[in-house]
């Protein structure tokens, strides 16, 4: 039983670094299989050739930071049967969501010689704040294997296997020694969503929280424990304000430590 038509895949970029889109090009071993399974119809990072919509699957990278993009995301949604966000920017607002805690006009004044040329919204918001999202793939950047898994799941009409539990579970499956317990290294692993395969702890680094909050993050308890490891409150604020600063549990915890 073969599929009738080759589904059309589109990639869209909003405010982002392009790293998540590049993850697809990075899938060297699987790229031919992807190109065989779907018609890559809109992927400006790879090709100027664009096939007209509608698209069966749209992968959206980046957050909404301009009035123009706030309009454009609705066009993307209208042209897409399924819309999947890829990465921390599209899912939580990205590192650029740090502006949400300050006055963006101040930043613009400092950075740009001619601030009046810049037209930016006051906040950086995830795609889900603007349109209906069918699935969110976490990570900064996303994991290549989870991207292939998500595309495979879409093609086979099943749910992607991207468990929402903590990084700790992956750490233990891998046989890592806990950096927090054995070395006193501050680590966001217990409150962070799995997906990276516990990459940083495998190299004796604490987790930076790239995949955002896990399903039921107890940030209050983790902050208490980090304080016992002599992490000061201002440092706690910085820890939670990484690539997923805009994700609600991390945002709230950072604000609590700022008071």
């Amino acid at each position: 039983m073969k599929r009738k038509e080759t589904p059309k895949l589109a990639l869209w970029k909003f405010a982002s670094c392009d790293g998540c889109q590049l993850s697809l090009l990075d899938c060297e071993d699987e790229l031919l299989a992807v190109a065989g399974a779907v018609q890559i119809s809109h992927f400006l990072e790879a090709s100027r050739a664009v096939v007209k919509g509608p698209y069966d699957l749209s992968l959206v990278e980046g957050s909404i930071t301009t009035a123009h993009d706030a309009e454009r995301i609705h066009q993307v949604r209208r042209a897409s049967k399924r819309l999947v966000t890829i990465g921390a920017c599209a899912t939580a607002g990205g590192i650029q969501a740090l502006r949400n805690f300050k006055d963006v006009r101040e930043f613009i004044k400092i950075v740009y010689a001619t601030p009046e040329y810049i037209s930016a919204l006051e906040t950086s918001t995830p795609i889900s704040a603007h349109v209906k999202v069918d699935f969110e793939l976490r990570g900064c950047p996303i994991s290549k294997s989870q991207l292939i898994e998500t595309i495979s799941a879409f093609l086979n009409n099943r749910k992607p296997v991207t468990p929402p539990h903590s990084v700790c579970l992956e750490c233990k499956l891998r046989g890592n020694v806990c950096v927090m317990v054995a070395h006193g290294v501050p680590c966001l692993g217990p409150v962070t969503h799995a997906g990276c395969g516990a990459l940083c702890p495998a190299y004796n680094r604490g987790c930076f929280g790239c995949f955002g909050p896990q399903e039921t993050p107890n940030t209050t308890s983790l902050s208490d424990q980090l304080s016992r490891l002599n992490v000061q409150r201002d440092e706690l604020v910085r820890m939670y304000r990484g690539f997923n600063a805009g994700a609600k549990p991390f945002r709230r915890e950072s604000e609590k430590n700022e008071e």
Binding site: R3, E149, S166, C168, L173, N218, L222
Partner: peptide
Amino acid sequence: CLTCANCTMACPTCFCTTVEDTTDLTG
């Protein structure tokens, strides 16, 4: 409690498993 699951992973008697099904791109 962090619900991080470390206790159950470290426990020498905890035995629970789940199954995950995967497909490749061709199906």
